[in-house]
Each structure stands twice: as C-alpha cells, then as structure tokens.
C-alpha cells in the first residue's frame, strides 16, 4: 500500500506530472524574461507544453543507423527518471522533514549526476562525431563544477553539525537560522549558484550544446519522442535544482502561507538571477570554464570552507 502511495507520489505529485508541468512553466519564465531582456514579446505561457506535445505526438523519432537503439532511446528515460526521483525526494522531505525518504543529501547529489551521465552516454550512443564532442565537453564541464560544488556542499554539512539527512538540514536551519545568513553560507551559496548554472547547461556554460558550433552537441541526433523526454528531464531539473538550493541554504519550504511566500520569492530570485546571468554573458570555451571553476570558484569555495572552520 505504501509502495503504491510512493508510486503515486513519483508519478503524479510531487513527481513526474507536477514537476514536469512546473518545469515547463518555469521554462516559460526563462523564455519570457529572456525575450524581455532582448526587447521581444516572448511566447505565451503554454508554448513549452505545445512544443513538447508536438515533439512527442507528431514528430518522427529518428534513430541513427548502426547504433544500440536501446541505449540511444533509454538514456533520455534515465535522465527523466532520476530528475523526477530527486524532485519527489525533495518535496516529500520538505513536506515532512522529520521522516526520512529514500535519500540524504549525498544521494541527491549522486542522483543529480545521472541526467548528465545519461546525456553523455546518449550523445556517445549517437555514433556522431559532433555528439561525441558535445558529450566530452559535458563530461569536462561536470568535472569542472563538481569540485567547487562538493566543497560548497561540505560547508552546508559542516554548518549543520555534520548532518547529511535533508530533514536534519532543514530542521537545523529552522532552529538556528538559514545557512545563507552566515558569511560562509553566503559565499558557499554563490559558489553553488555558479555551479548550478553549469549543471543546467545555461550560458555561459552551454558549450556542450553550442548550437552555432557543434549543432546542439549531444542532442544532435535526438528527435521526436526521445528529444521530448530529454527536454522534459531538463525542465524538471530546472524546476527542482533551485528547490534543492532553497532546501540547503534557506531552510526549505515551510508548509504555511508565509513559508510558501518566502520560498516562492527565494525561488524566483534564484531563477531570475540565473536567467540574467545567462542573458548577459557570452559562451566561454571549455578550457576557460575549467580554469574558471578550478580557479576562482574553487578559491571562493575554499574561502567559505575556511570561514566555516572558524565558525562564521
């Protein structure tokens, strides 16, 4: 019976249906803000839904010849599944922080790796040189942001008295104040924000796709339903990753009116900050990104770690 409830949570709310729809709506905010920044009108709110339906229902799914079809078509599903799982975990734990559900913060970090791994393998499975290049860039990008990402995460774990259960992290912040409010937490939040920008493949870190250069990279051979599933996975990630940040740095989402309003404002701020960064920066090369992440961003992360050691 509980298993059925969990399956319901995973498929309907707060899982696939809910976070997928929310992701598409958030994607619309992204498109709209981008359009306004570029002095355009932008699409209507339901545009992303139409795009997805068109891809899934009306477009052919092409498979490159001589590849492993199961691998090629399976990777988008894997990406979507893990993104949905993260969303389910985060929302259920935010709903009742005292009960542990499926995973702690380390599990979530590893589950968040899967969409990137799935994209890389999907690109490799396309047997296309451009896709291989795109995937290899995605891999290198992942290596770049993973180091400061881990360091920033350790700051949170350290601040919460070595707790790794998400519920414990939320409860700690409710009794001791948000981690973001500490100097170390603040710096670590901005480090995390930059890493998230890359995790979502937003400009200036969109070199794995680089439409003008390697024609969408890993996505080049994807079409129809397979592409639709990949797009949905990205939408879920776009929706869920800011929630992850709110959980780590702002004490999660409290189920009360002011709690929800606070979370909503934080969410929109994180989102709009990411969109503005996306629209005001040019794409960097992969080696520049690596040097940036392993240089400046890692130094910042180490600084916040040092502050955390000093108890600040």
């Amino acid at each position: 019976m509980t298993a059925l409830l969990y399956i319901f949570a995973f498929l309907i709310f707060p899982g696939l249906l809910f976070s997928g729809s929310m992701g598409l709506l958030v994607g619309w905010i992204d498109r709209k803000v981008t359009a306004r920044l570029q002095w355009r009108v932008g699409p209507p709110w339901y545009q992303n839904f139409l795009d997805l339906i068109k891809l899934a229902l009306y477009k052919e799914t092409l498979i490159p010849s001589g590849v492993s079809g199961a691998m090629f078509l399976g990777m988008p599903v894997l990406a979507l599944t893990s993104a949905t799982l993260v969303s389910t975990i985060l929302f259920l734990i935010n709903g009742s922080p005292r009960t542990g559900f499926i995973g702690d913060v380390i599990v979530v970090v590893y589950l968040l790796l899967i969409p990137a791994v799935a994209l890389i393998l999907g690109g490799f499975a396309s047997a296309n040189s451009l896709a291989s290049l795109g995937s290899s860039r995605e891999m290198k990008l992942m290596l770049s942001y993973e180091l400061p990402f881990i360091l920033a995460l350790i700051v949170v774990i350290m601040k919460c008295g070595c707790a790794i259960r998400l519920g414990d992290i939320i409860m700690y912040q409710r009794s001791h104040g948000d981690i973001f409010m500490n100097p170390s937490g603040g710096i670590s939040f901005f480090v995390m924000l930059i890493c998230i920008q890359a995790k979502l493949g937003f400009v200036p870190f969109d070199m794995p796709e680089a439409e003008t250069e390697i024609m969408a990279g890993a996505y080049i051979e994807y079409s129809g339903k397979a592409l639709a599933i990949f797009k949905l996975a990205r939408a879920v990630l776009l929706f869920v990753i800011p929630v992850f940040l709110i959980t780590l740095y702002f004490g999660g989402i409290k189920l009360s009116l002011d709690g929800l309003v606070k979370a909503m404002i934080e969410y929109l701020l994180i989102l709009i900050l990411m969109i503005v960064v996306k629209n005001t920066n040019p794409r960097v090369r992969i080696d520049q990104a690596m040097k940036f992440f392993w240089g400046v961003v890692t130094v910042l992360a180490l600084l916040s770690l040092a502050l955390a050691y000093l108890g600040r």
Binding site: T61, P64, S65, N128, I220
Partner: peptide, 11 residues
C-alpha cells in the same frame, strides 16, 4: 511504428 533509422546528421 514512428521510428525510422537514418544516417548520421552532420549539418
């Protein structure tokens, strides 16, 4: 049945 096997696309 809407799957079709095609050659690689490189622009």
């Amino acid at each position: 049945g809407s799957f079709r096997v095609v050659d690689n696309f490189v622009g």
